[in-house]
């Protein structure tokens, strides 16, 4: 229960992910406050799909999100910079060969 010096309790924070149409990935839409998962889902629908923006919604308690930090940037992502061979346009095909993939 909250004390008088903090008169407003606003429930816990949830992150909302919406899928615009089936076949597309779920994308982060924003966050909201809800007391539990069911209410988070209903609120997410009302807040983040007022204009048919979603066919599917995920909600996750914000406290369960784990993210990399800016300090990780170097060690996480730089090593991929010089691995050009992971991209198909690294490879040339002989002239006259039509390549579709």
């Amino acid at each position: 229960m909250s004390e008088s010096n903090i008169p407003t309790n606003q429930w816990k924070l949830w992150e909302v992910f919406t899928q615009k149409k089936s076949g597309l990935p779920h994308e982060h839409a924003g966050s909201l406050r809800a007391p539990d998962a069911e209410m988070a889902l209903l609120n997410a629908r009302d807040v983040y799909s007022r204009r048919n923006e979603a066919v599917s919604i995920w909600v996750v308690p914000s406290e369960c999100m784990v993210s990399s930090t800016p300090e990780d940037v170097g060690s996480f992502f730089d090593p991929a910079n010089d691995k050009l061979y992971r991209h198909p346009n690294f490879y040339k095909t002989p002239d006259g060969v039509k390549w579709t993939s």
Partner: peptide, 11 residues
């Protein structure tokens, strides 16, 4: 009672 419900009730 809370902003989320304002949006739900108007909906």
């Amino acid at each position: 009672p809370i902003l989320e419900e304002d949006i739900a009730l108007t909906n």
